[in-house]
Nucleic acid binder design. Structure first.
Ligand SMILES: [Mn+2]
Ligand SMILES: [Mn+2]
Ligand SMILES: [Zn+2]
Ligand SMILES: [Zn+2]
Lengths: 146, 146
DNA sequence: ATATTAAACGATAATTATTCTCATTTGTCA
DNA sequence: TGACAAATGAGAATAATTATCGTTTAATAT
């Protein structure tokens, strides 16, 4: 029979594979992140974790969030460019974002087949528009890697 | 014959329609935003404008950027949630974002037809993945508006 | 053209988000 | 168990953004 791994065991295994120490803080941060079905801010994670580890520091939450993002244990919702990025082109269009140099390129709307939802959005969500981002590496950065 | 409106004239007309004064600062900020084909930060806009209006304040740039965003003269690239939003769900999936309450809802990947580019991306961009965001108003917020 | 006035501006303080530094503690591995 | 690198906590530092307030300016009605 297959061994059934608990979330905790899976987490520990992934940490080992990544060479990360399995600390109490790390464990609780990850557990709380999974527990909320939401898309919390680092601050919100801190609040949840602090209920269990009152002495934890917000810096520790930030550090581990970053570690988890790098490791692929977490994703960020919407690209976090650190600061607002503006676009005076108000024609509907989409974007390619290079994860190396962070540059942003336009894609004309006509280049992409229209997005289609297979079902009506649950819970009466009223759709305004779709925003598509193509994530990857731009030609220049790909070339620079040899 | 049709009158051909310069960008400047179009800008002034839109300001009047919105009840916004046509100030020198506003005019130059908008002109520079359009001039750069890029997706600049407010700071970068400030630098460009300062070359023409040395006494301008960064606060003025921020205020007008916000005004322009509200008015629809500008768009933001990627949704700017103000702070990082995390997702422990690493299965490929997409999101609906309510522009009223800013809540974020999951959409399973299976609910959306795969994105198709009609042509190969120019300039050798290597695609990693697509991120789709459905922008609109959630059921709760729509109901609350009567 | 000039006066009136609300809106916009500039300077700068305040706030919020995030990162950094460094002394201390803790997990890992021999 | 002991050694040591990694991780943590406290708090300072930085970066991004917003707020305050006295002065200037654009709009508009004389
Ligand atoms: Mn664009
Ligand atoms: Mn999600
Ligand atoms: Zn690049
Ligand atoms: Zn809502």
């Amino acid at each position: 029979m297959q061994p059934i791994e608990s979330l905790q065991q899976q987490f520990e295994a992934r940490c080992r594979k990544l060479g990360l120490a399995v600390t109490h803080q790390r464990t609780v941060i990850y557990r709380e992140l999974v527990a909320t079905g939401e898309h919390p801010t680092p601050e919100a994670v801190y609040e949840r974790v602090k209920a269990q580890i009152p002495a934890i520091s917000l810096g520790t939450v930030y550090k581990n969030v970053k570690t988890f993002l790098d490791a692929g244990l977490l994703k960020e919702v919407s690209l976090h460019h650190g600061t607002l990025r503006l676009d005076a082109n108000t024609d509907p269009h989409h974007h390619m974002v290079c994860r190396q140099c962070r540059r942003i390129f336009d894609i004309p709307e006509s280049e992409i087949e229209p997005v289609r939802l297979k079902n009506l959005p649950e819970s009466g969500f009223q759709i305004d528009r779709f925003s598509i981002e193509v994530l990857g590496v731009c030609g220049a950065c790909a070339a620079a890697r040899e």
